[in-house]
Amino acid sequence: MEKPLDRCLDEVFNTPGVTGVLCADAQGLCLSSKGTAHPRAAGVITSLMKQAAQLEPTADNLPVLRLESESCNILIQGKSEITLAVYKTPE
């Protein structure tokens, strides 16, 4: 059942610069993770997205979050029930 999701995440994971991908459901459970993204991060990523949605509750779309450190950028986007995090090396 999860094959289409896995295929989609594989496609993202194989993009140059991407080191990890994680997909979580609305309860913060990890649906799939690849590379440097650890499944235990699923809960925090979902909570972070829920907090961010409260910043501007009237906005049409959820924001994209970008967390930057010296060696890694994490991009997080939520869409309905799913939250996706992409781990990248800085450009």
């Binding site: 080191t19 990890g20 440097t36 993204a37 650890h38 235990r40 991060a41 925090v44 990523i45 972070l48 961010a52 910043l55 501007e56 906005a59 049409d60 779309n61 924001p63 994209v64 979050l65 970008r66 967390l67 930057e68 450190s69 010296e70 060696s71 890694c72 994490i74 995090a85 781990y87």
Partner: peptide, 20 residues
């Protein structure tokens, strides 16, 4: 959080929250 990549525990230096 435990969000950092497995081999990397360095702190985050910036957070951006981007709308349209």
């Amino acid at each position: 959080s435990t969000m950092s990549p497995t081999e990397n525990k360095e702190p985050f230096k910036r957070l951006s929250i981007q709308y349209d």
